[in-house]
Protein backbone atom coordinates (compact mmCIF):
# COMPACT_ATOMS: atom_id res chain seq x y z
CA UNK A 1 0.00 0.00 0.00
CA UNK A 2 1.26 3.40 -0.89
CA UNK A 3 0.30 4.95 2.43
CA UNK A 4 2.25 2.34 4.37
CA UNK A 5 5.34 3.09 2.32
CA UNK A 6 4.94 6.76 3.13
CA UNK A 7 4.62 6.04 6.85
CA UNK A 8 7.68 3.79 6.67
CA UNK A 9 9.69 6.36 4.77
CA UNK A 10 8.80 8.99 7.32
CA UNK A 11 9.89 6.67 10.12
CA UNK A 12 13.23 6.02 8.42
CA UNK A 13 13.89 9.72 7.85
CA UNK A 14 12.77 10.85 11.27
CA UNK A 15 14.60 7.98 12.95
CA UNK A 16 17.82 8.92 11.17
CA UNK A 17 17.54 12.59 12.07
CA UNK A 18 16.70 11.74 15.68
CA UNK A 19 19.59 9.30 16.00
CA UNK A 20 21.94 11.91 14.58
CA UNK A 21 20.70 14.49 17.09
CA UNK A 22 20.90 11.95 19.91
CA UNK A 23 24.49 11.24 19.03
CA UNK A 24 25.32 14.89 19.48
CA UNK A 25 23.65 15.23 22.86
CA UNK A 26 25.90 16.39 25.67
CA UNK A 27 27.59 13.57 27.58
CA UNK A 28 26.96 13.06 31.27
CA UNK A 29 29.61 14.62 33.45
CA UNK A 30 29.40 11.94 36.07
CA UNK A 31 29.25 8.16 35.96
CA UNK A 32 28.98 6.69 32.52
CA UNK A 33 29.13 9.61 30.07
CA UNK A 34 26.88 7.72 27.66
CA UNK A 35 24.12 7.01 30.20
CA UNK A 36 21.71 9.69 28.95
CA UNK A 37 22.29 8.67 25.33
CA UNK A 38 21.60 4.95 25.28
CA UNK A 39 17.84 5.20 25.38
CA UNK A 40 17.45 7.86 22.66
CA UNK A 41 19.97 6.10 20.43
CA UNK A 42 18.14 2.81 20.80
CA UNK A 43 14.83 4.50 20.00
CA UNK A 44 16.21 6.17 16.90
CA UNK A 45 17.77 3.04 15.48
CA UNK A 46 14.72 0.93 16.26
CA UNK A 47 12.50 3.44 14.47
CA UNK A 48 14.69 3.19 11.35
CA UNK A 49 14.49 -0.61 11.41
CA UNK A 50 10.73 -0.68 11.88
CA UNK A 51 10.33 1.96 9.19
CA UNK A 52 12.14 -0.35 6.75
CA UNK A 53 9.89 -3.24 7.76
CA UNK A 54 6.78 -1.16 7.16
CA UNK A 55 8.05 -0.09 3.72
CA UNK A 56 8.71 -3.70 2.79
CA UNK A 57 5.30 -4.77 4.00
CA UNK A 58 3.71 -1.95 2.04
CA UNK A 59 5.51 -2.99 -1.13
CA UNK A 60 4.42 -6.59 -0.73
CA UNK A 61 0.75 -5.86 -0.34
CA UNK A 62 -0.30 -4.40 -3.63
CA UNK A 63 -3.66 -3.06 -2.66
CA UNK A 64 -6.27 -2.16 -5.22
CA UNK A 65 -6.07 1.56 -6.00
CA UNK A 66 -8.42 3.35 -3.66
CA UNK A 67 -10.69 6.10 -4.79
CA UNK A 68 -8.99 9.35 -3.87
CA UNK A 69 -10.67 11.05 -0.98
CA UNK A 70 -12.22 14.31 -1.86
CA UNK A 71 -11.52 17.45 0.08
CA UNK A 72 -8.97 20.15 0.05
CA UNK A 73 -6.23 21.05 2.44
CA UNK A 74 -6.77 24.76 1.94
CA UNK A 75 -8.63 25.28 5.22
CA UNK A 76 -6.05 23.29 7.18
CA UNK A 77 -3.21 25.41 5.89
CA UNK A 78 -5.06 28.62 6.71
CA UNK A 79 -6.00 27.36 10.18
CA UNK A 80 -2.38 26.57 10.92
CA UNK A 81 -1.39 30.04 9.73
CA UNK A 82 -4.01 31.71 11.93
CA UNK A 83 -2.84 29.64 14.91
CA UNK A 84 0.74 30.74 14.37
CA UNK A 85 -0.40 34.34 14.01
CA UNK A 86 -2.18 34.02 17.35
CA UNK A 87 1.01 32.68 18.90
CA UNK A 88 2.95 35.67 17.63
CA UNK A 89 0.39 38.26 18.78
CA UNK A 90 -0.70 36.71 22.09
CA UNK A 91 1.88 38.29 24.38
CA UNK A 92 1.78 41.64 22.59
CA UNK A 93 -1.93 42.27 22.29
CA UNK A 94 -2.93 40.49 25.47
CA UNK A 95 -5.46 37.70 25.82
CA UNK A 96 -8.72 39.45 25.01
CA UNK A 97 -7.74 41.30 21.84
CA UNK A 98 -5.73 38.49 20.35
CA UNK A 99 -8.37 35.88 21.14
CA UNK A 100 -11.12 37.93 19.54
CA UNK A 101 -8.99 38.25 16.41
CA UNK A 102 -8.06 34.57 16.49
CA UNK A 103 -11.50 33.10 16.97
CA UNK A 104 -13.01 35.74 14.69
CA UNK A 105 -10.52 34.85 11.98
CA UNK A 106 -11.24 31.15 12.27
CA UNK A 107 -14.98 31.70 12.21
CA UNK A 108 -14.88 34.02 9.22
CA UNK A 109 -12.82 31.51 7.34
CA UNK A 110 -14.73 28.37 8.28
CA UNK A 111 -18.23 29.65 8.89
CA UNK A 112 -18.08 32.19 6.08
CA UNK A 113 -18.15 35.97 5.99
CA UNK A 114 -21.90 36.04 5.46
CA UNK A 115 -22.52 35.07 9.07
CA UNK A 116 -20.41 37.98 10.27
CA UNK A 117 -22.84 39.00 12.98
CA UNK A 118 -22.83 35.64 14.69
CA UNK A 119 -19.11 35.28 14.19
CA UNK A 120 -18.33 38.58 15.86
CA UNK A 121 -20.67 37.97 18.77
CA UNK A 122 -19.25 34.50 19.44
CA UNK A 123 -15.66 35.71 19.37
CA UNK A 124 -16.25 38.59 21.72
CA UNK A 125 -18.40 36.59 24.14
CA UNK A 126 -15.93 33.70 24.18
CA UNK A 127 -12.90 35.89 24.81
CA UNK A 128 -14.54 37.96 27.52
CA UNK A 129 -16.19 34.93 29.11
CA UNK A 130 -13.00 32.92 29.33
CA UNK A 131 -11.12 35.91 30.60
CA UNK A 132 -13.69 36.54 33.29
CA UNK A 133 -13.79 32.93 34.43
CA UNK A 134 -10.03 32.64 34.67
CA UNK A 135 -9.36 35.99 36.21
CA UNK A 136 -12.20 36.13 38.70
CA UNK A 137 -13.05 32.54 39.50
CA UNK A 138 -9.81 30.61 39.03
CA UNK A 139 -7.48 33.43 40.09
CA UNK A 140 -5.31 32.71 37.09
CA UNK A 141 -4.05 35.78 35.38
CA UNK A 142 -3.96 35.98 31.62
CA UNK A 143 -1.82 38.58 29.86
Amino acid sequence: MRTDCLVGAFAVLFGTAYTFQAFHLPRAMIGNPWAPLYFPLALGLLLVVIGVVVILQGLRHVAPPKAREKGSKRLIVFTVLICLGYTALFDHLGFIASTILFLGGLLFMINGARAWKINSVISVVFALGVWYVFEKIFYMNLP
Binding site: D4, V7, A11, F14, G15, Y18, P40, L43, G44, L46, L47, I50, G51, V53, V54, Q57
Partner: peptide
Protein backbone atom coordinates in the same frame (compact mmCIF):
# COMPACT_ATOMS: atom_id res chain seq x y z
CA UNK B 1 4.37 -2.36 13.04
CA UNK B 2 2.68 0.98 12.55
CA UNK B 3 1.70 0.67 16.19
CA UNK B 4 5.36 0.30 17.04
CA UNK B 5 6.22 3.41 15.04
CA UNK B 6 3.58 5.26 17.03
CA UNK B 7 5.03 3.86 20.26
CA UNK B 8 8.57 4.88 19.37
CA UNK B 9 7.50 8.40 18.41
CA UNK B 10 5.82 8.70 21.80
CA UNK B 11 8.93 7.52 23.61
CA UNK B 12 10.97 10.03 21.62
Amino acid sequence: FKGFISLLLGLM
